[in-house]
Design a protein around this nucleic acid. Structure first.
Lengths: 136, 136
DNA sequence: GTGATGAGTCAGCAC
DNA sequence: GTGCTGACTCATCAC
């Protein structure tokens, strides 16, 4: 148990006495007795019993557990969303690819019809207006 | 410090004496003296000094820290990858969309040329072969 | 204060 | 054993 207050964050300072091994109300005196005393004094000053603090910590942890779970779920959902969008786009693209091919075929058919028409004109020696001579 | 061995996982059982507040080699006697004694005996049986165990734990934690970091980085990279692929697909799709429009225009031009040719034929009262009469 | 998140830790899994 | 990952905890930040 790090009894050095300088090393404790806010929550940690509040909760420190609840660390896994409280040992007793006051112990470890031989190490950092002053800090421990300060901590206990702080607690007493706030009028909190050890039991209240335990409950408080449990409550905070419980809340936090929920937040963490939400956070994880959110991550998973966002990933799923990305994958879904990606597969949707892939589908759309495939459809467009097909449409594209269809149109190309159509153009080819049209072009050959046009060519046939021109051949027909040539066969019959029918002069075509210049703007109709060449395909675009 | 949960001294009840039944509640400790493997790693926890090994590492338990290292929890933040060891207090001392043997303390908390008034609470669960037997478990603590057992733990210490276990440790001695394995021929491990407290110092060795501390080092061991630090090493394990350090390794794990690295693994956790890799795990997080991997997650981020996978997400980036997904987003990149998505935006690439979006790009491709847009290009194809344009291509599609271009081809449609082309077909329209061709069709109007063909119509002009037919009108020309009609004007000149040139009978067209049936298969050239209608556009596909 | 409430909620979210990066990092460290632990347990448990796969290989 | 080594590495990975879900869950928990903590510190920290934004609102």
């Amino acid at each position: 148990m790090p009894h050095d207050l300088k090393e404790l964050g806010v929550r940690k300072a509040i909760m420190a006495p609840l660390s896994p091994t409280p040992c007793a109300e006051i112990s470890d005196d031989e190490l950092v007795s002053i800090s421990v005393r300060d901590l206990n004094r702080q607690l007493k000053m706030r009028g909190l019993t050890r039991d209240q603090i335990v409950r408080m910590k449990q409550s905070v942890d419980s809340q936090d557990r929920g937040y963490a779970a939400s956070c994880r779920i959110k991550r998973i959902e966002q990933k799923d969303e990305l994958e879904t969008e990606k597969s949707q786009e892939w589908h759309d693209m495939e459809a467009m690819q097909e449409e594209n091919t269809r149109i190309r075929d159509e153009i080819e058919a049209l072009r050959s019809k046009y060519d046939a028409l021109k051949r027909f004109a040539m066969m019959k020696s029918i002069p075509l207006p210049a703007e109709l001579e060449m395909l675009p």
